[in-house]
C-alpha cells in the first residue's frame, strides 16, 4: 500500500533581485524585480507503508519545500499529492492527526517545561484522553530511553536528549507517517548513532513510515532501504540502497604500505590516486579486476600494511550531484 503518492509536483519561488548601490535600493522601493526559480520541478514518487525513505540533496535542492508541501504547510503550484489518501492542501487539519513532524532546526517543545509536561501538551493538541496519553508516554519513554531526564526542564537537556524528546512528542498521537527534517543536524557522532538506532527500533516496533531528509550520509546508510536524491528541484535518482551501492560501489579503494616500490601503471581497471613511492592509494574497478588479483600484483610478501575500503557514500552522492550539474 502506498502511503505517499506524489505526481508531477512543481513549485516555483520568486526571488527578489536587488540592484547594486544606493540607486538600486531606491529603485527597488518603487519597482521590485523578481527572478523565478524552480524549487521543485515535476517530481513524482511513491512511498510504501513501513518504509524508511531518505530524501537527500544539497542545500536549496528542494527538500524542505517538498516536505512542507507533503505536510500541508505550503501549497503546490502544480501536480498532486496524497498522503494517506488525504490531500494536504485541502485537509491540512485532518492530515495533521495522522502524521508527525520533527524539524531538526526548529524546536517545537516548551523549553522551560519538562519533557513529560510537553508530552501532555501534545496529547491535548491531538485530543488524546488522559489515560491513553499516560500509557503512550510510558511506552515511548522506554523505547527512547528518556527515563533519566523525563522530569528535567527541556532547556537543561543536551541537544541529543532534546531531539529524542522532539521525536517522542511527534509520536504521541501514533502517526502513521513521520517526517524527519534533518533530525541529526548539529549532533556529535556518538549521539547521531544513538538517535539512528532509536529511529530504527521505533520503525520496527511501531511500523511507522518514515520520510527523512538529511544531508548526513551516515543517516541514510544506516537507516534507509531506499533513497531519493534531489538536486535543483528534480529527482536525480530514486533507487534502493542496495542498487545504489551495487551501481556505484563497484569500486574499492586500496591503500598499501610496501617494502619496495611497485609499478602498477597501465594495468586495466586500476587508477592510481596517490603514489608516494612506498605508499600507494589506488582505486580498483571490480568489474575489470577483483581485489585478490590486485593483491597478487602487489606481491603479498612485500606488503607491510593494507587497507581496503568502499568508496564513501558521500563521494558517490556528490559524484551524482556533479553529473547532474553538467
Amino acid at each position: 500500500m502506498n502511503v505517499i503518492e506524489v505526481k508531477n509536483l512543481s513549485k516555483t519561488f520568486k526571488v527578489k533581485i536587488k540592484e547594486k548601490g544606493l540607486k538600486g535600493s531606491l529603485k527597488s522601493i518603487f519597482k521590485q524585480k523578481y527572478k523565478t526559480i524552480d524549487a521543485v520541478k515535476d517530481i513524482s514518487f511513491e512511498v510504501e507503508k513501513g518504509e524508511i525513505i531518505a530524501f537527500i540533496g544539497p542545500n536549496g535542492a528542494g527538500k524542505s519545500t517538498t516536505i512542507k508541501m507533503l505536510t500541508g504547510i505550503l501549497y503546490a503550484d502544480e501536480g498532486s499529492i496524497e498522503v494517506l489518501k488525504i490531500n494536504p492542501t485541502k485537509e491540512r487539519k485532518r492530515l495533521a492527526y495522522e502524521i508527525g513532524t520533527v524539524f531538526g532546526q526548529k524546536e517545537q517543545l516548551w523549553m522551560h517545561l519538562t519533557p513529560y509536561d510537553n508530552f501532555k501538551f501534545f496529547s491535548a493538541i491531538y485530543d488524546i484522553p488522559e489515560q491513553v496519553a499516560e500509557k503512550r508516554i510510558e511506552k515511548l519513554k522506554i523505547l527512547f530511553e528518556l527515563n533519566d531526564f523525563i522530569d528535567t526542564p527541556v532547556r537543561n537537556l543536551s541537544l541529543g536528549q532534546r531531539i529524542r524528546c522532539e521525536i517522542v512528542a511527534s509520536l504521541i498521537h501514533e502517526p502513521k507517517v513521520l517526517f524527519l527534517d534533518e533530525p541529526t543536524i548539529g549532533l556529535d557522532p556518538v549521539v547521531k548513532e544513538n538517535i539512528r538506532t532509536l529511529i530504527k527500533r521505533m520503525n520496527k516496533e511501531l511500523k511507522t513510515t518514515i520520510f527523512l531528509t538529511s544531508h548526513d550520509v551516515g543517516d541514510i546508510e544506516k537507516l534507509c532501504k531506499r533513497v531519493i536524491i534531489i538536486n535543483h528541484g528534480r529527482i536525480v535518482l530514486d533507487d534502493s540502497m542496495e542498487n545504489l551501492k551495487y551501481h556505484y560501489l563497484n569500486k574499492k579503494i586500496i591503500e598499501v604500505k610496501m617494502k619496495e616500490k611497485v609499478n602498477l601503471d597501465d594495468e586495466e581497471g586500476i587508477t592510481i590516486l596517490k603514489d608516494k613511492g612506498y605508499n600507494l592509494k589506488i582505486e580498483v574497478d571490480t568489474q575489470y579486476k577483483n581485489v585478490a588479483d590486485v593483491i597478487k600484483l602487489l606481491d603479498p610478501d612485500k606488503i607491510i600494511d593494507i587497507n581496503i575500503s568502499n568508496i564513501p557514500l558521500e563521494n558517490i552522492i556528490s559524484a551524482i550531484y556533479k553529473n547532474e550539474d553538467k
Binding site: 504547510i73 492527526y97 526548529k106
Partner: peptide, 12 residues
C-alpha cells in the same frame, strides 16, 4: 521567522 510552520502541522 517561519515559526508558523510548527503550528501548521498541528490539527488546531
Amino acid at each position: 521567522k517561519g515559526k508558523l510552520d510548527a503550528f501548521l502541522v498541528q490539527p488546531k
